[in-house]
């Protein structure tokens, strides 16, 4: 197994690396299954009649739904740690995603660093993801902090 320093040095060589762009059609059924899994009863996501009378004029996806669109990033095996934990998530939304939209997600490795935490050495890898729609408009930007320890 690599030391934390070795893993960080190797990982940092890949910062800026982008994954392939991946497009998905936003489906009403996928939104429904997602909000059912959250246990979120908001009719804005599932009831067209209700949603029509809101500022959106129709159903939208809930904020974090974009996380269901895979944004692959072929990370090298840094030979460190045995478990991945999610350290944090951040999103900026610029426009809602709606059923029928074709959303393209593309990830970039934004940051690699090491920390000595209370539970030992941790390798931190931050990826950023850009989400654009079928007209090339920016829908959202996401950031995910992965912890390997």
């Amino acid at each position: 197994m690599a030391s934390l320093e070795e893993a960080v040095a190797e990982g940092q060589r890949h910062v800026g690396m982008a994954g392939p762009a991946n497009s998905r059609v936003i489906e009403a059924g996928a939104i429904r299954r997602f909000v059912e899994a959250l246990g979120d009863p908001n009719p804005l996501y599932v009831d067209p009649e209700y949603a029509r009378q809101t500022r959106y004029g129709g159903i939208i996806a809930p904020p974090t739904f974009l996380c269901t669109i895979p944004a692959p990033l072929d990370m090298p095996d840094l030979g460190f740690g045995r478990i991945n934990l999610n350290g944090g998530s951040s999103y900026d939304w610029y426009r809602p995603a709606r059923p029928g939209d074709v959303i393209t997600a593309q990830a970039t490795l934004a940051e690699v660093r090491g920390v000595q935490g209370g539970s030992g050495a941790m390798l931190i890898m931050v990826r950023s993801v850009r989400y654009t729609d079928q007209d090339g408009r920016l829908v959202a930007e996401g950031r995910g902090t992965g912890i390997r320890r």
Binding site: L44, R55, P62, Y91
Partner: peptide, 22 residues
């Protein structure tokens, strides 16, 4: 994070637009 989105959107109502969650 999805539950935080639910918290904020259900409080803000159907005419609120959630711009950022961290």
């Amino acid at each position: 994070a999805g539950w935080l989105g639910e918290l904020v959107q259900s409080w803000g109502g159907p005419n609120a637009f959630v711009r950022h969650i961290e």
